[in-house]
């Protein structure tokens, strides 16, 4: 089986606080976020997370044979940031390296790709990094996104191990009809940065943004989540031939308190089996699941032999769910 051997995460030093007296803060359950400095980029956070993985664990750089890098905050259009990271991390030139452009579903997709690479014999030790700095896309006066998103990075080492522990089933979903509901409209080739695209506008709720900023249609994202998350969980249960009660712990993409609590209650999942790990770091996009996984392991909520469900969902729309049995 392919197992997660270790996980480390890195959050930038600068803390941004949400007003505790604001009822929005209580509803979203996010009190602080870590924000990258002006000259600190997702790849820098990625390097910090990966270096921590090498320093804190018995892992040698020369043992890595594949690097997967999930980000929506790449350094350049080209080259691929994963190639830049190979050099900056002093990884062997014999590795394969590629970027995955996915957001909140990205961790589950990356695990699936790593499993495929290892099980098919193409790689032995996959280094899978997630990193994003959505803060750089967010207008400071847009309350529909600013209180939610934090910056961060994670590094996961995946490897083959004998025995019944590791990554099991995956299910996926994609619906590009929702692509306009969570988007940075300008700055790519189709809609390049221009004076018009930098013009700030105020929406019906008084939020300010330009086309070069992150836009989120909250109600539509909420509706998408309500429909697709329970459906994908049912698909996973069907694939595994088991019930929700057979799972010992659940880690959903850590979007915000309101959405997660609503989903938890709708699905009738016990709050003791359900990860809530964003109060001090916000929604860190593809890094939320590995951060939560690491923290739940550290606080003993996930133990050896536990059956764990991971569910990622968001920008795209893209979603995926996975089951695994924890190894150590």
């Amino acid at each position: 089986m392919v197992t997660i051997k270790s996980i480390e995460y890195y959050l930038p030093e600068h803390v941004e606080v949400n007003d505790r007296n604001d009822k929005l803060t209580t509803k979203i359950g996010i009190f602080e976020k870590r924000i990258a400095k002006a000259d600190e980029y997702a790849s820098d956070l990625a390097i910090a997370a990966a270096n921590q993985l090498f320093e804190k664990n018995d892992i040698k750089r020369e043992d890595i044979d594949f690097l997967l890098y999930c980000t929506q905050s790449p350094d350049y259009y080209l080259p691929t940031t994963a190639c830049v990271l190979q050099n900056r991390l002093s990884l062997p030139t014999s590795i394969g390296a590629l970027d995955i452009n996915l957001g909140c579903s990205g961790y589950v997709y990356g695990l699936s790709l790593a499993k495929g690479l290892i099980e098919s014999g193409q790689a032995n030790n996959v280094l899978f990094i997630t990193a994003d700095t959505y803060s750089k896309f967010i207008h400071p006066k847009d309350r529909s996104v600013k209180p939610l998103f934090g910056d961060g990075a994670t590094a996961t080492l995946l490897t083959a191990a004998p025995g019944p522990f590791g990554l099991k089933s995956f299910v996926f979903g994609t619906d590009g009809s929702g692509s306009n509901n969570l988007i940075v409209p300008a700055g790519g080739l189709r809609n390049p940065l221009s004076e018009a695209n930098l013009k700030e506008e105020t929406d019906a709720f008084g939020n300010i943004r330009s086309n070069s900023n992150l836009y989120m249609n909250g109600p539509e994202i909420f509706n998408f989540t309500l429909n697709e998350v329970p459906a994908s969980i049912n698909k996973l249960l069907e694939k595994e031939g088991c019930n929700l009660e057979d799972f010992d712990f659940f880690i959903f993409h850590q979007a915000n308190q309101y959405m997660l609590e609503y989903l938890r209650k709708k699905l009738k999942i016990d709050s003791n089996k359900f990860s809530i790990q964003f109060g001090d770091c916000g929604n860190t996009v593809s890094s939320t699941i590995p951060i939560a996984l690491k923290r739940e392991l550290e606080n003993g909520k996930i133990k050896k032999g536990d059956k764990v469900m991971l569910v990622g969902f968001g920008v795209g729309y893209s979603w995926a769910a996975a089951s695994l049995t924890w190894n150590e």
Binding site: G218, P219, Y258
Partner: peptide
């Protein structure tokens, strides 16, 4: 009556 109310209403 704001975007959060929209979401609460839908919930």
């Amino acid at each position: 009556w704001d975007s959060l109310a929209y979401i609460s209403l839908n919930a």
